[in-house]
Design a protein around this nucleic acid. Sequence first.
DNA 1: TATAATTCCTACTAGTTTTGTAGGATTTAT
DNA 2: ATAAATCCTACAAAACTAGTAGGAATTATA
Lengths: 158, 158
Amino acid sequence: MKLSKRSKYGLLASMDLASHKDLSPVPLKDLAKRNNIPLKFLEQIFLTLRNSGIVRSQIGAGGGYTLGRPAKYIMLGEVIRILDGTIAPVSCISKIAYEPCTCPDERTCALRAVMNQVRTAIVGVIDNTSLADAVARTKSRRSPKRSGRAKNIGGISR
Amino acid sequence: MKLSKRSKYGLLASMDLASHKDLSPVPLKDLAKRNNIPLKFLEQIFLTLRNSGIVRSQIGAGGGYTLGRPAKYIMLGEVIRILDGTIAPVSCISKIAYEPCTCPDERTCALRAVMNQVRTAIVGVIDNTSLADAVARTKSRRSPKRSGRAKNIGGISR
DNA sequence: TATAATTCCTACTAGTTTTGTAGGATTTAT
DNA sequence: ATAAATCCTACAAAACTAGTAGGAATTATA
């Protein structure tokens, strides 16, 4: 159930981009440095994102990347799909990356039904959270006065 | 976001086991054959499940496996955790497999917060569905009179 | 016009993980 | 005895992930 680093890096950098109100392009070098991402790896990732229209590039000195659309119209799910491929936990519930199950009859396969529920639950989150939402959340969490040990907000088990 | 074959096979075989009302042990050979799972691979998987108490084994001729507990008390999530390890989409929200993010401050990391929501959504399904639930669902789906092309129940995109 | 900063593009590679295979040892019902 | 099972460990092939490498092309600016 893991998110790849590709997606993780892509999301972090996109969110960083989204947090820049100003419309001038941000060079990858900055995004990479701020988020501790290997620059060359991020280049590849942004190539892909650019080809999908998520970001726009401006070549040359003073160039860099900007979002391809307003941040509120870019859902995290879209970025993840572009970078990771499918979201479906099993391939037999994927239109795009469909592959048959080993089960004798998909129509009655209980695992398939449950995994479909899982998929619905996942996309319920990631397709309803935009880059703008995410950035806003970052800000509202910022500087919680730091009383004591910060109690690991949202920190959870396995 | 993919479920490993280990987990998939483990779940399919466990669900198969759960569908046997009768308490006599079922040999792996049968489970493997019915669910198109390589026998030797399933052996490994069931070794692990047995060590965790999910199933019990009975050695020798006429032996096989039975569930370690009533099917309604075995949640799919438990099986997945045993076979796949963590469920958290990013390691920085896992207690057991915790690893720090690359982000500068976990407390304000928006991606972490969203991924935490994703994790909650996932476990909301898999920790609330027991083997018994899954099996019951299989049955209720069975023989829907097959009018026409069976319309791909619960079939969805990426 | 030279220089530096930047994206663009493709290929390669090292490491890890996944998905098995193999081979036999042990136990037990008949 | 024999056959049918589980038990256990090691190995191996293939796929995937997470990068590295090296340069080409473009553009602002001094």
